[in-house]
């Protein structure tokens, strides 16, 4: 266990060093994401004044944006890590660790989670300041639901990361996942029952209940929380399964380190 914590520390330290050393890049990323928000915000206001209707609320927009952001960075953390490490040739080293590759990736994504949390918090602050809305940031209620929701993002990340190992040309299509994630956040899984089966959707609906409608975990109830985790774990299992299949294929064709 101690060695696993060491490994996680090492990932956190590496991430920290690189984001500090390449601070301009890191800030550039934050600013880009903020600009995306401004565009959404502007578009939303434009639409509203054009149509003269108030479908959806500003609160919903901000909550949806940060949730999408968190899902996106989480997904990227899994997928992009696999892709770049394969490209750099360090993936093969990660496979030669004294820990199983599952643990290595686990440590990596947990380390990444803290950085994503920081990033999302900053952008949430910026979005709130820009729009002047207030949201119910009840961390005790949000935390458990959020992690259950993110299981789906990791699942998508591992699955696509695995496919990228085998089919390098899939790369250019992965852009679409960003839009897929928007659809998953926006899916009305609270009302349409089958949509709860989609990755992240039901969790997103619950999070918006907390942030926008001001509910807390007890009001949401244990049943729904368990459902979020149940769905999330099934997706994660599927994602890891797809990854494992692709990993085996890559080991057979000798392309774990090639790009």
């Amino acid at each position: 266990m101690f060695r696993k914590i060491l490994l996680m520390q090492a990932f956190i330290k590496k991430e920290f060093i690189v984001s500090k050393r390449y601070l301009v890049n890191s800030l550039g990323g934050v600013i880009t994401l903020y600009v995306i928000f401004l565009l959404m915000f502007g578009g939303y206001q434009g639409l509203r004044s054009l149509a003269g209707v108030g479908g959806g609320t500003m609160e919903g927009l901000v909550a949806g944006y940060v949730l999408w952001l968190f899902m996106l960075t989480t997904y990227q953390d899994a997928w992009y890590t696999l892709r770049t490490e394969a490209q750099q040739g360090t993936l093969e080293q990660l496979y030669m660790s004294v820990h199983s590759f599952g643990w290595v990736m686990g440590a990596k994504v947990v380390a990444g989670f803290f950085f994503n949390l920081l990033l999302v918090a900053v952008l949430l602050g910026a979005a709130l300041l820009t729009t002047g809305v207030t949201l119910n940031i009840d961390l005790l209620s949000l935390g458990p639901v959020l992690i259950g929701t993110l299981l789906g993002s990791w699942a998508i990340g591992f699955a696509i990361g695995g496919i990228t190992l085998v089919l390098k040309r899939i790369d250019s299509y992965t852009q679409m996942v960003q839009f897929l994630l928007i659809a998953l956040v926006a899916a009305p899984a609270g009302r349409v029952l089958w949509m709860r089966l989609l990755p992240c959707s039901f969790g997103s609906a619950l999070i918006s209940r907390i942030m926008v409608d001001g509910m807390n975990l007890t009001q949401i109830g244990m049943g729904d929380l368990l459902l979020v985790y149940g769905i999330g774990l099934v997706h994660l299992g599927l994602g890891c399964g797809i990854y494992k299949l692709c990993e085996r294929k890559a080991m057979l064709q000798g392309t774990l380190g090639h790009y």
């Binding site: 060491l6 330290k13 590496k14 040739g89 360090t90 093969e92 080293q93 990660l94």
Partner: peptide
């Protein structure tokens, strides 16, 4: 392995050594 890519380009030698030591437990 081929092309000696067992390091991170953005880390220094010392940081690389520390990271890969941790990876090996």
């Amino acid at each position: 392995l081929e092309g000696n890519r067992n390091m991170y380009w953005r880390l220094t030698p010392r940081e690389n050594l520390e990271f890969f030591a941790a990876l090996k437990g």
